[in-house]
Nucleic acid binder design. Structure first.
Length: 632
DNA sequence: TTAGGGTTAG
């Protein structure tokens, strides 16, 4: 490696010349020398250059290998100086490698200056610049260079295009993405694995899965990355079950062999579905195929088990990991949080610090979330106050949202409002949503209206906001206001998001909606429910019709409650799984309050543990109580 | 010189 005075790789007969005089780099747009200060104050100011013309110094391969060894930018500059001195700058292979190494070291200014000074450029030179800017997140410059390249009359190729497509993905610019897709077609690159992988990924991040799937389906030959991107796309676009189907298809074809990255995508799909059996099957596959759990796959596994309902297994995986970083710790802290084990979450924090891991923004979001979902008000305040002072992490709107949630849930609405009034961070829909949630719990109709107005102003097209306000009116018996909201929604052509509940039985996922009669065992399910309700009412369960948000008579309300998707799934679980076994269900919306009470009673009379994953968190029902302590 | 990997509020 290069040292400032006598590098071991060089012979001893050096002459000393000024580095800057050999390689001053000038920005072609301003004609000023770049970063001159970086030359003058460093021990590497003086560079040793060999004078004897050993063939080694005239051989481009020597410089290519030297460039690859560089770990710091100043070392690249040293080799750059040697290249210039020895007259190899005109060699395009050497010049392009230099461009690439500068961009790898995020020295795009140097790369660009060098790029402009080249008397001759080839496709590689252009690609390296487009890619360098894209990777550095300088999207404007990346696109600018790409346009210049096209204007120069050359054809974009399978190197340049993935970089530009990456820009479209990172900026979520679907319109531009489609334009680039046209360029791909015009240049006959629609089957190139690199280009298609990039396009599929771009369409996936822009949430247009059909376009991604079309491209993927048309490919004559797919490689591992293309499969992986497509599997990830399904999860990204809300169809994680399809992701698992694709993974099976990929293995059945037998052309490519999955690697760790593919498995991370599969593990993510399982986490999204929340199905424990599938999680175990994937875990077994990972063990059987001897994949070691590196920090990324390990973290994904921790997250998967937690999101499939077992925070204990997640902890076992966590404890077994050789390497853990701040993401792993944050995932575990977050898991305890959404499973309602706030104390365990905050107890992990000092352990994490002692193991030398420094918290980031997400660690604090997870900690504060854990506090708010376990009612740990003082602990939450203490953490919130310490995050900037002790750890230099500036609270952003998400941290304020957790605090509003924490205070609001605890009934401290005034403190919550004070925090909102004094915060110096831009307010978003999540923040108003937290306040609205607190109003819902504590029945503050007027304040709820204020929060809902702010929400609707920010996102007029989100039906969830209207539904929340409507729920609050319904709870207060303000049926005229409920009707107004409904009219407003009809006028805006907004529809409520339909509620679904899933349950995994015999490795198959069964889905229920409200009043669903489509299941093959529907008759038995309704019979079981009817029988169950009689039993429950005998031990004190009273259906809570406040959670039926229609202005209908009581009898109809009861009928509505009776067929909520959560109840149908639980009844099916009871008739189709062994006695004593845990029932795990997943709901796409927040669990209904009456169903929450229902679950408590069912866990009591059947001696079953019921684990419910709703849109926000987990509820573990056991012996008539919920792990959330009714604090949700 | 090209494409794919983990945690977060409401």
């Amino acid at each position: 490696m290069f040292k400032s005075k006598t590098p071991k790789t060089f012979p001893s007969n050096y002459a000393t010349i000024r580095y800057s005089s050999a390689t001053s780099i000038v920005d072609p747009t301003t004609h000023q020398e770049l970063h001159q200060h970086t030359f003058s104050n460093q021990p590497n100011d003086i560079q040793q250059i060999p004078t004897s013309h050993f063939s080694e110094y005239l051989d481009p391969k020597f410089y290519l290998s030297q460039l690859l060894k560089c770990k710091r930018v100043y070392q690249v500059k040293q080799v750059h100086a040697q290249i210039t001195t020895n007259g190899l700058f005109e060699n395009l292979i050497v010049a392009n490698k230099l461009l690439y190494i500068y961009s790898l070291h995020k020295s795009l200014d140097y790369a660009y200056a060098l790029f402009c000074s080249l008397s001759e450029k080839n496709a590689v030179s252009w690609s390296v610049m487009v890619g360098g800017y894209a990777k550095a997140g300088d999207f404007l410059n990346s696109l600018r260079i790409f346009r210049e390249y096209i204007r120069s009359g050359d054809k974009p190729d399978n190197y340049t295009l993935p970089f530009v497509i990456r820009v479209c993905r990172d900026t979520m610019d679907l319109q531009m993405g489609r334009k680039i897709h046209n360029v791909v077609c015009k240049n006959g690159l629609e089957s190139d694995v690199f280009v298609v992988a990039a396009l599929v990924d771009m369409y996936s991040k822009c949430k247009v899965i059909n376009d991604a799937k079309q491209l993927f389906d048309k490919m004559p030959k797919r490689d591992l990355v293309t499969w992986t991107v497509m599997i990830g796309a399904c999860t990204e676009c809300g169809d994680p079950s399809e992701a698992l189907v694709l993974f099976d298809q990929m293995r059945e074809e037998g052309v490519v062999v999955p690697d760790k990255v593919a498995l991370v995508n599969v593990v993510n799909a399982c986490a999204k579905i929340g199905a424990m059996h599938k999680a175990k099957v994937v875990h077994e596959y990972i063990v059987r195929n001897k994949f070691s759990l590196d920090v990324i796959l390990g973290t994904a596994m921790v997250d998967m088990y937690a999101k499939c309902g077992s925070v204990d297994v997640a902890r076992e995986v966590f404890d077994g990991l050789r390497e853990k970083n701040v993401i792993t710790w944050s995932a575990m802290i977050g898991a305890y949080g959404y499973h309602g084990q706030g104390h365990k979450a905050i107890d992990m924090f000092p352990v994490m610090l002692r193991s030398g891991i420094f918290p980031n923004k997400i660690t604090f979001v997870s900690l504060l979330y854990a506090c708010s979902h376990s009612g740990l008000v003082e602990e939450g305040k203490r953490l919130f106050n310490s995050m900037q002072k002790e750890f230099g992490v500036k609270p952003d709107v998400k941290h304020f949202t957790c605090m509003v949630d924490l205070l609001g849930r605890a009934g401290k609405i005034d403190e919550s409002l004070e925090l909102i009034d004094n915060m110096a961070v831009e307010k978003d829909e999540g923040l108003w949503g937290a306040l609205l949630g607190a109003c819902r719990i504590h029945g503050h109709v007027e304040l709820a209206e204020k929060a809902a107005r702010s929400l609707i102003e920010l996102q007029p097209q989100n039906p969830g906001h209207y539904v929340l306000l409507s729920n609050i009116y319904a709870k207060a018996g303000k049926w005229q206001d409920v009707a107004k909201i409904r009219e407003l929604m009809t006028h805006q052509k907004l529809k409520k998001i339909p509620g679904w509940t899933w349950i995994e039985v015999d490795n198959k996922i069964h889905r229920f909606s409200i009043g669903d009669h489509t299941h093959p065992r529907s008759k038995e399910i309704y019979e079981k429910l009817k029988y169950l309700l009689e039993e429950l009412e005998a031990v004190g369960y009273v259906p809570d019709t406040n959670f039926v948000l229609h202005d209908v008579d009581e009898e109809l309300k009861l009928g509505n409650l009776f067929s909520h998707s959560e109840k149908l799934a639980i009844a099916f679980g009871l008739i189709s799984t062994p006695e004593q076994s845990t029932i795990r269900i997943m709901k796409n919306l927040r669990v209904c309050g009456d169903c929450h009470t229902f679950c408590k009673f069912v866990s009591q009379i059947t001696s079953r543990v019921i684990v419910v994953r709703d849109a926000n968190r987990f509820h573990h029902f056991k012996e008539g109580a919920c792990s959330c302590g009714d604090y949700w």
